[in-house]
Nucleic acid binder design. Structure first.
Lengths: 71, 71
DNA sequence: CGAATTTATACCTTATCGGGTATAATGTCA
DNA sequence: TGACATTATACCCGATAAGGTATAAATTCG
């Protein structure tokens, strides 16, 4: 399960919102939230960002522990 | 310009790679990298993640300064 | 400056995402 | 337990992302 999926699911529940209500409030489709929380990886960046914004966050690069390449 | 776009552009240059070379090495299309660095917002999450992984990073939620909602 | 390299932009095709709707599965609470 | 609310899954359609190719613009370097 993706980090983002968990984040959204937890944040949503913390606010006591249903997926439907969150969809209305954040402006994305219900199906999108379902897909995201279900772990779909091929979502559109702007939509995810729109959702995260509702929770006071945005998408950004986070360093990996193990580091992929040496950059 | 999105945070991510700048991140990729800088990281790529820091490694002295051309867009073409980065495309080959990271496994995404050249056009994708072009679009991303050009600020396109409607990219797919998994592709961006794939690229960030090459730089030892991943996509994740980052707190906003001003905070959108009260979450 | 001129030549070569790199990046930006445009056009085209294929695959699929987002959204709607319907239905099934699951969870919640009396 | 049953009734209700919520979430998960499946199908359809329109819009568009991704990638390829070609060309123009910009950058680099002698």
């Amino acid at each position: 399960m993706s980090h983002i999926a968990l984040f959204v699911k937890e944040k949503r529940r913390a606010l006591g919102l249903t997926q439907e209500r969150l969809a209305e409030m954040s402006g994305v489709g219900l199906r999108f939230i379902r897909d995201l929380e279900q772990g779909k990886e091929t979502l559109r960046l702007d939509k995810v960002d729109q959702l995260l914004f509702f929770f006071g966050h945005t998408l950004g690069p986070i360093p990996l522990k193990g580091g992929g390449n040496g950059a």
